[in-house]
Simulated scan of single mutants.
Amino acid sequence: MALDDPATLVSTDWLAAHLRDPDLRIIDASWYMPAENRDTKAEYEAAHIPGARFFDIDEISDARSSLPHMAPSPEKFMSRMRAMGVGDGHQIVVYDTDGIFSAPRVWWLFRLMGQMNIAVLDGGMKKWVAEGRAIEDLPPVIRDRHMMVRFQNQMVKDVTQVAAAAKLGAYQIVDARAATRFAGTDPEPRAGLRAGHIPGAVNVPFKTLLNENGTMKDEAGLKAAFTAGGVDLEKPVIASCGSGITACVLALALERIGKTDHAVYDGSWTEWGSVPSMPIETGAS
């Protein structure tokens, strides 16, 4: 697949060339682990790619759930996007400050809502700034536009569906966490969670899909990383991680290699690891 694909991934060169397109909408989806104590909204307000809107992953979520940043209802998503001036007919580019970390979560949310015209900025804000490209601290001009949502149920799995998949082996469960967290040798960053992984899962740490500069590997590199992690690319995949953020890096990478039969376990280990009745395994896959 060519690097610049408006439905998956675009380069900083592509974004610079299209920056003034009237129907382009840029989204800053930066997010950090709670322990980092960073104010993403303040960082966005201080510096962002020109015209970018801020997407609050924790706020644009299901407030009824006790789990962090679960996918919002279609109604809430539509309402928040209208308030951001993002709607039908827009080409959306989403980025984060880390390179490729949290932006794929928002890419996946748009696709979950049936919006396919969204791409992640390869290398994110870090690459954009390193190249000396323009940034600003101005708020975007918001123009209301309606968004039609067509919820894609097949793209998200709940704990019951994942438990069945683990038992029956119909799906490959692929965990994006670091190898030490997957194996259970490192404690979980969230209090109260057991250490380990879903039985039968394999481990593809999301960073193995990225180059040293934070860009995504090419198709051959992605396939090699999945194969090295024990993924059978002939089987459908359920992607999991700590709380549903980096699982979406796996989803983006799978889409980049032309594999479309994938879903995200939205509750991920934050849910599975907190339920005493759910079985766990430890050790490498």
Rank of each mutant, 00 (worst) to 15 (best):
A2T: 11
L3H: 12
D5F: 08
D5W: 03
A7W: 01
T8H: 14
V10S: 05
D13H: 14
W14F: 12
L15R: 01
A16Y: 08
H18R: 14
D21W: 08
A29D: 06
W31T: 04
W31A: 05
Y32F: 13
E36S: 12
T40F: 01
A42Q: 09
E43G: 00
A47P: 00
H48K: 04
G51V: 08
G51D: 10
A52E: 08
R53K: 14
E59H: 13
E59T: 12
I60L: 06
I60W: 05
S61N: 03
S61M: 06
D62G: 10
R64A: 15
S65D: 13
S65L: 11
S65H: 11
L67T: 03
P72R: 02
E75T: 12
K76W: 06
M81S: 02
M81I: 02
R82Q: 13
G85S: 10
V86N: 03
D88V: 07
D88W: 08
H90R: 05
F101V: 02
F101P: 00
F101M: 12
F101T: 01
A103L: 07
A103P: 04
R105T: 10
F110Q: 01
M113C: 05
M113E: 01
M113D: 04
G114K: 04
Q115S: 04
M116E: 15
N117F: 02
L121K: 08
D122Y: 07
M125Y: 15
M125C: 00
K127D: 03
V129G: 01
R133D: 07
E136D: 13
L138N: 09
P139L: 11
D144Q: 12
H146L: 08
M147P: 00
M148V: 15
V149A: 13
Q152A: 14
Q154R: 15
D158R: 08
V159R: 15
V162G: 02
A164S: 14
A179F: 10
A179T: 11
T180C: 07
R190I: 12
R194N: 00
R194Q: 09
A195Y: 01
I198R: 05
G200S: 06
A201G: 07
V204I: 12
K207W: 06
K207N: 10
T208G: 01
T215I: 02
M216N: 02
K217S: 08
K217R: 15
A220V: 14
G221I: 06
A224H: 11
A225K: 02
A228N: 13
A228M: 01
G229Q: 05
G230T: 09
G230F: 03
P236Y: 13
I238P: 01
A239V: 00
G242T: 06
I245F: 06
A247Q: 10
A253T: 03
L254A: 03
R256P: 00
R256W: 10
K259W: 06
D261M: 01
H262A: 14
H262R: 11
A263T: 04
Y265L: 07
D266V: 01
G267L: 03
M278Q: 11
M278W: 10
I280W: 11
G283M: 07
A284C: 00
S285Y: 10
